[in-house]
């Protein structure tokens, strides 16, 4: 009798913990159960990837659309090459994407892996190159936000203040050789070692292979093992750790502005959405992204809650 009871209790416990699994239900091309009811405008499928920032943005898009009276389904997948074909054929209606990212993707898809880059630090030029590529695939591109998530380099706040540094040029101007903490592919890349040495004139004595934005690279910079590390512009943890980004004043990073990519047919059928999303793009800043990422990654808040708070703070709902 007590054995059966114990077994039942154990099973219950197991089910409960499984249910508390949180947002780990994404898989390639499968539903995320983000369904809502009460729609009179029809249904929308919001796409995206399963890293924190994308989850938050997808949640923001979903709430805006619900607010407009749509019933929303969210599909989060692993990589761009999974959701982009869906965006073309209408399986997915709208995706928060990154300007240079989607441009490079469509460019190499059309012109081959070794095709010369059409993206650059210039957002407008990149957008111009993107539009025809996207149209060919049945994708409409809405105006990009000023908020960007691109690679950036950071140093300790102490070091920046001591030498009055705000930009990478300032640092390069010091003329000392530096040790860099960056992923193993940094060497030669225009947005990494290549750009730093050729465009900025840095002398890099050693690249210590530490992952992009990882706890390890931040630790290495803090301890002084390396002088500079690589992370993203929306990394919200920096100020709390006494680290600070240096501005890419000479523009070696391609423009990765947050850009809504919409299925052309869907947009044609719902033209009012353009204004709605323009309002969102105008309100969104890089700092907002950083703060929201921090809330999810460090404070363990849910993307939906973070999205709702952002929207109400900005008065967009």
């Amino acid at each position: 009798m007590s054995r059966a009871l114990g077994l039942a209790a154990a099973s219950l416990l197991l089910l409960a913990t499984a249910a508390c699994g949180g947002d780990s239900l994404e898989s390639s091309g499968s539903d995320n159960g983000g369904d809502t009811g009460n729609a009179d405008k029809g249904s929308v499928v919001v796409g995206g990837q399963d890293f924190t920032e994308s989850q938050v943005l997808a949640a923001i898009y979903a709430k805006i659309l619900e607010n407009e009276g749509y019933s929303v389904e969210t599909k989060l997948v692993t990589t761009r090459d999974v959701y982009l074909p869906e965006l073309s054929n209408g399986g997915v209606d709208i995706v928060p994407d990154y300007l240079a990212g989607i441009t490079d993707y469509l460019n190499t898809e059309k012109n081959g892996a070794d095709a010369p880059l059409v993206s650059s630090n210039d957002a407008d030029a990149t957008l111009e190159a993107l539009k025809p590529l996207a149209e060919e695939k049945g994708i409409s591109i809405l105006p990009p936000s000023d908020a960007t998530d691109q690679n950036a380099f950071f140093v300790t706040k102490e070091f920046a203040e001591a030498n009055s540094l705000t930009t990478l040029s300032d640092f390069a101007g010091l003329g000392k050789p530096i040790k860099l903490g960056a992923p193993p592919d940094c060497e030669g890349r225009a947005d990494c070692e290549g750009g730093l040495t050729e465009t900025y004139g840095f002398t890099i004595s050693e690249i210590v292979p530490l992952d992009f934005g990882s706890a390890q690279v931040k630790d290495a910079v803090t301890k002084g093992e390396v002088d500079m590390g690589e992370t993203g512009t929306t990394d919200g943890s920096l100020s709390g750790m006494g680290l600070v980004l240096l501005e890419d004043d000479k523009g070696i990073q391609p423009a990765q502005n947050l850009t809504p990519a919409v299925n052309a047919d869907f947009l044609a059928a719902n033209p009012d959405l353009e204004d709605v999303f323009n309002a969102l793009s105008a309100a969104l800043t890089t700092d907002d992204l950083a703060a929201m990422n921090l809330a999810v990654d460090v404070e363990r808040q849910k993307p939906e809650d973070v999205a709702a708070k952002f929207l109400s703070d900005k008065g967009l709902l």
């Binding site: 992923p183 193993p184 592919d185 940094c186 210590v208 292979p209 530490l210 992952d211 390890q216």
Partner: peptide, 20 residues
């Protein structure tokens, strides 16, 4: 060890990953 930027054959693997 390569994951903490240490030595060894893991460096080949991480290099491959980074360069896709």
């Amino acid at each position: 060890a390569a994951l903490v930027a240490g030595p060894g054959l893991g460096r080949i693997i991480t290099r491959g990953f980074a360069n896709q």
